[in-house]
Nucleic acid binder design. Structure first.
Lengths: 118, 118
DNA sequence: TCCATTTTTCAATAATAGTCGAAATATAGA
DNA sequence: TCTATATTTCGACTATTATTGAAAAATGGA
């Protein structure tokens, strides 16, 4: 995943309405939700919702599929996993993330003396 | 981690300059980098850099520590992990989602899988 | 104190993002 | 075809974010 796409994906989720939309879709699972149902669940008016769904879609975070008069939206787990993979590598700096993922991150004063990992 | 904080953290990273800054700091490890060094590495002019560092700091993604005439910035791995935890739960919808951390992040023994009190 | 160095704040501007009612589009069924 | 339903687009507006030179603030050392 290129950083350009990462920024786009992050920006897609970095907004109250869109994060709520995405969470609804994740919770709904592979069956997804119709746009109107998302509007009901989140309280976002249809026109605003459409705007945000387009953002999410453009970022690859959701897919859509017409179904009769409805449009079913689903969370794109592949993109989400790619995003998490990128962030994890960034978080871990390419090293095994033991110093990161253990609760040993709190000492603030005495870690400037540690040497940089390879 | 509350969704408000998640949105703030995501927004902090959802920008070219800030993602570059954060990656530099992750790569630098716990020793961190002086502001001027970040400016050199990223090519971001000092005033812009200061703006973005403040954003990152406000989001809890970086910490700073004066050191003489320098200000040393470090990535806040705790926040980053909390963010990844939230996103992983969102991505997985409460189900196991092993493919996220497989490549480089294999824990050697026991990783503290901290749960938030929500 | 005075100076060089480092970083932040200020200020003005440019660019992008968010909101939502109303109109337009598309579809299914009668 | 006509109508009700579902969704998107349009348009006008507001709000937020990003950029950066110049000035200011803070520090260590001569």
């Amino acid at each position: 995943m290129e950083t350009k796409d990462v920024v786009t994906a992050l920006a897609a989720l970095a907004q109250d309405s869109r994060l709520a939309i995405f969470r609804s879709l994740v919770q709904a699972g592979p069956a997804g939700l119709a746009a109107g149902r998302i509007s009901e669940l989140t309280g976002i008016p249809p026109s605003s919702l459409s705007f945000h769904l387009k953002e999410l879609s453009h970022a690859g975070m959701v897919d859509s599929q017409p179904s009769g008069r409805f449009v079913i939206y689903t969370a794109n787990f592949t993109t989400m996993n790619a995003l998490l993979g990128f962030l994890t590598e960034n978080c871990c700096g390419g090293n095994p993330c033991s110093p990161v993922c253990t609760p040993a991150c709190e000492p603030e004063q005495s870690r400037a003396t540690e040497k940089e990992p390879t």
